[in-house]
């Protein structure tokens, strides 16, 4: 039996149960719900638009929006990861062509990513069997959205252009990590550090991808810059490379262990996201990014508060649907 409706979603766009459909409903075979085609592509387009306009990663917005639209949190997370695969493919290829990827560093991070992704997927499976996966996912998002919203708000308010990351190279943290065992040279990034550091970073990104369905760029990019002292040009390409393959491995693991990847949902979101990102990027030069960032941060904070409130509300019934296949 497919997954049931999420108890956290308000069911916007989900076809009513006993009424006539709009004629454009698409049945999502793994999610087990029917979603209006415009809503499906529209959610992707909204996330892609904001991503293109403000230069923020869309993963952290996609999963909570899917949950709000009545998709089971477990399916939302796994399908979000699948969508990240599609969204990062062309970027990774472009960066590979431009030689902006430190493949050696990326492979070590990827090894950690696969391990972390595997651990995260197993953790979700256990939580699902316990019946608490949805609560953990939603709570993780409450924290993440509050952090992201807060950071964006401060950034937009101070109109602070991110500093020159390269100026932070060879920081104290970098020098400390470089003293750890398994020291290696990474010629593309022009650094020499312990393989342990990128491996652990990879694990963290893998866990985030599996439990929250995010690419982890918001965490990876500053961490690679600060802890590994990788030049910004290489950071973007290498993080995308690692994100693509970590997300791919997590998608396969989620499909194999939790049966929670809905490819129909992912394709619809991807089409919308790609179109939205193009529109967003084309408008980015004309609109005040800092002001928009403040608006988005407030929306993200409101979403976080709404999700937190949903967690505290008494459920419709003390019983819940078994929910999983």
């Amino acid at each position: 039996m497919p997954f049931g409706n999420s108890s956290f979603g308000c069911g916007w766009g989900v076809a009513p149960r006993d009424e006539g459909g709009t004629g454009l409903d698409i049945f999502l075979p793994v999610a087990g719900v029917s979603l209006n085609a415009f809503v499906l592509v529209g959610v992707g387009a909204l996330v892609g638009f904001l991503s293109g306009l403000l230069g923020v990663g869309g993963g952290f917005l996609l999963t909570p929006l899917l949950i709000m639209f009545g998709i089971d949190p477990l399916v939302a997370v796994a399908t979000g990861t699948n969508a990240i695969v599609g969204a990062s493919t062309s970027g990774t290829l472009a960066h590979l062509r431009a030689k902006n990827v430190d493949v050696k560093l990326g492979m070590i991070m990827l090894a950690g990513g696969v391990l972390g992704g595997g651990a995260g997927t197993v953790l979700l499976r256990i939580l699902r069997q316990e019946g608490n996966a949805d609560v953990v996912i939603v709570f993780s998002y409450v924290v993440l959205l509050a952090l992201m919203g807060g950071l964006m708000f401060v950034e937009g308010l101070t109109s602070q252009v991110r500093g020159d990351y390269d100026a932070q190279r060879k920081s104290g943290a970098y020098r400390m990590l470089a003293r750890l065992p398994f020291r290696m040279r990474f010629p593309v990034s022009d650094i020499e550090t312990s393989a342990f550091a990128p491996f652990v970073l990879g694990i963290a990104v893998g866990v985030l991808a599996a439990v929250m369905g995010v690419g982890g760029g918001f965490f990876l990019i500053p961490a690679m810059t600060y802890f590994l002292a990788v030049p910004m040009r290489i950071v973007v390409g290498t993080s995308l490379f690692q994100m693509l393959f970590t997300s791919a491995s997590v998608t396969i693991l989620q499909a194999a262990l939790n049966h929670s990847v809905d490819v129909v949902l992912a394709v619809g979101l991807l089409i919308g996201a790609t179109l939205g990102a193009q529109v967003g990027a084309s408008l980015a030069g004309r609109l005040r990014g800092d002001q928009l960032k403040i608006v988005l941060s407030l929306l993200v904070l409101a979403l976080s508060i709404k999700m937190f409130n949903d967690l505290l509300l008494m459920p419709v019934s003390f019983l819940t649907l078994p929910g999983a296949r």
Binding site: N82, A83, V85, G86, A87, S88, T89, S90, A248, T251, I252, A255, V261, V263, A266, V267, L270, I271, T274
Partner: peptide, 11 residues
Amino acid sequence: LAVLVAMLTGL
């Protein structure tokens, strides 16, 4: 298959 479909759709 989901990974391949996503990659292809993205491209």
